[in-house]
Amino acid sequence: MKRDIRELFNNEEEQEVKQLPNNHRAEFLTQLKKQSKPKRKPYGWLSVAAILLIALTIGFSVFNTDIDKDDPEPIIAQIEAVEAEYLANIETEWQSFIALTEDEKLVTRFRKKLDELDMDYKEISKQFKNDSNNILVIEALVDNLQTRLQILKDIQKHIKILNQKNEQHENTF
């Protein structure tokens, strides 16, 4: 049963030489065209409408977004930061003031004034919570803090001038 494999191939070449049909090229192209035709979608217009609708909705909401409607939280955060900084400075100036003067009456008067301003501040803060976008209220808050700081700075300057050593004179000149 032993066979030479080279003979086997020689015989096959002789027996089965098949020819391609003449119009094979045209048939191939026809088949190719059939396959590449897109499948028709019956509700294609719906997707177009949906896209349009989404685009319009986004456009409308952007167009109607009032510039005033930004989130109030950052304003509140800013005020809190400003408040914290001022209060720290006020406390520093207060300590510096009470160290500078020996006039207890003066200290008492300033403490009373600062307490009054603090009560005012609490009242304005209530307004601010109800009306956090009102610049007038915000200005009142900042003015209040500035006033407290300024009167403390001014009185220290005043005391320093009073305490400077100068000529002493009699009462008439």
Binding site: V82, N134, I135, L136, V142, Q146
Partner: peptide
Amino acid sequence: RNSRYYREYQMEQVLIGRL
């Protein structure tokens, strides 16, 4: 209440300026 038009202020700049 709520003077809306003042919100066109640039709050940050106002406060930073004041600080």
